[in-house]
Amino acid sequence: MTTTLAFDLIGYLFVASSVVSLYRVLWGPTIPDRLLGLNVASAQILAILVLYAAKEKLHVYLDVALVYDIFGFVGILALTKFLEKRHRKGE
């Protein structure tokens, strides 16, 4: 009973902190600010996924966190590669 309550409370805390870190994504003045916000928010979301996997005690839920970690890294890598090329062009 208290364990479920603690899991719910920590889940709400992680959602709230990811929404707070979304501020930098939405109103960040420059594009590197937005990328940094995306990275921070994805770390918080990953923590939520692992927390739910520990709460439900299912291995399938951990696979979601693993796949998101790999493909989120690939996506951020593509974004930074594009940013590097645009910066080198002198824009």
């Binding site: 979304l22 594009i31 939520i48 739910y52 974004l79």
Partner: peptide, 21 residues
């Protein structure tokens, strides 16, 4: 800015993955 739109879409898909989860 289209680059910012791509970043926002990435974070939209991230949150929708959490919603399905």
């Amino acid at each position: 800015s289209l680059f910012t739109a791509v970043i926002l879409m990435a974070i939209f898909s991230l949150f929708s993955a959490v919603l399905f989860f």
